[in-house]
C-alpha cells in the first residue's frame, strides 16, 4: 500500500497543507515543495522531522562548528513555540515572510525583531554595535573601533529622529522605507521557484494544481 492517499498517513507537520496555504502566501503546491526542503534540513543530524539548532546552522553555513549571533536570532524568531526545535509549521510560517509576495510590513516587523536582540521594543546602540562587530568578525573584516563608532554615529543621526538614543519601530520603518536595500535579505527569490527546485513534491501531493 505504498500509494495510500489516506490523509492520516501524511508526513508529520504536513497533515493539512491547505490550512498552511490559506494562512501564508504559499500555494498548496509550494507548501508541499517547501516540505521537501524541510525534510532535507531536518534529517541532516537526527531524522526526526524537526529542525534543531545544529541542523539549522548546518543548512545555513554548511558547517555545525560556527557560533553565530544571527543564526541564533533567526532560529529563535522562527521558533514561535519556544521549545528549541522547529516543526514544519513554524518553518513555513516564518519563511512565508521572506516570500517575494509577502507584505512589506511583515518584512519590516520581522527585521525589527531580528535586530531588537534584547526584545525590548527598540534597537539600542549597544545592540547595533554588537551586531556590527559580529558581522565584521564573521567576514574577517577589520575596522578600528573609531571607524565602527562613527558608522554607528552616522546611522543613529539618520535613524534616531526622536534623539533618544534608540530606534523604535516607527523610526525603523521610516529608515527602511528610505533605504529599501536594508530589507534585501528579507526576500528570498528561491521561494518563488520552490516547486521547480523541489519537483519531487508531486509524488506526495494531495492536490492537482
Amino acid at each position: 500500500n505504498c500509494c495510500d492517499a489516506d490523509s492520516s498517513k501524511q508526513p508529520r507537520g504536513l497533515e493539512n497543507p491547505q490550512v498552511l496555504a490559506t494562512e501564508t502566501v504559499f500555494s498548496v503546491s509550494e507548501i508541499e515543495a517547501l516540505y521537501e526542503l524541510f525534510k532535507k534540513i531536518s534529517s541532516a543530524v537526527i531524522d526526526d522531522g524537526l529542525i534543531n539548532k545544529e541542523e539549522f546552522q548546518l543548512a545555513l553555513f554548511k558547517t555545525n562548528k560556527k557560533e553565530s549571533l544571527f543564526a541564533d536570532r533567526v532560529f529563535d524568531l522562527f521558533d514561535t513555540k519556544h521549545n528549541g526545535i522547529l516543526d514544519f509549521e513554524e518553518f513555513a510560517r516564518a519563511l512565508s515572510v521572506f516570500h517575494p509576495n509577502a507584505p512589506i510590513d511583515d518584512k519590516i516587523q520581522f527585521s525589527f525583531q531580528l535586530y531588537d536582540l534584547k526584545q525590548q521594543g527598540f534597537i539600542e546602540r549597544q545592540e547595533v554595535k554588537q551586531m556590527v562587530v559580529a558581522t565584521l568578525a564573521e567576514s574577517g573584516m577589520n575596522l578600528s573601533d573609531d571607524v565602527i563608532e562613527s558608522i554607528i554615529d552616522k546611522t543613529f543621526e539618520e535613524a534616531d529622529t526622536k534623539h533618544d538614543g534608540k530606534i523604535d519601530k516607527e523610526e525603523w520603518r521610516n529608515l527602511v522605507l528610505r533605504h529599501p536595500s536594508l530589507l534585501k535579505n528579507m526576500t528570498l527569490q528561491y521561494l518563488k521557484d520552490i516547486t521547480t527546485t523541489f519537483p519531487s513534491f508531486v509524488f506526495h501531493s494531495q492536490v492537482d494544481d
Binding site: F61, V128, M131, E138, H179, S181, K184, L188
Partner: peptide, 25 residues
C-alpha cells in the same frame, strides 16, 4: 568610505542573515 556606510547595511550582509543558503547544497 566605510564611515558613510549604514550600520544596518553592513549587518544585513551577515551570512547568518542570508537565508538563501538554506536552499543551496
Amino acid at each position: 568610505q566605510p564611515t558613510s556606510m549604514n550600520a544596518f547595511k553592513l549587518i544585513s550582509m551577515s551570512k547568518g542573515l542570508n537565508l538563501e543558503n538554506l536552499f543551496e547544497d
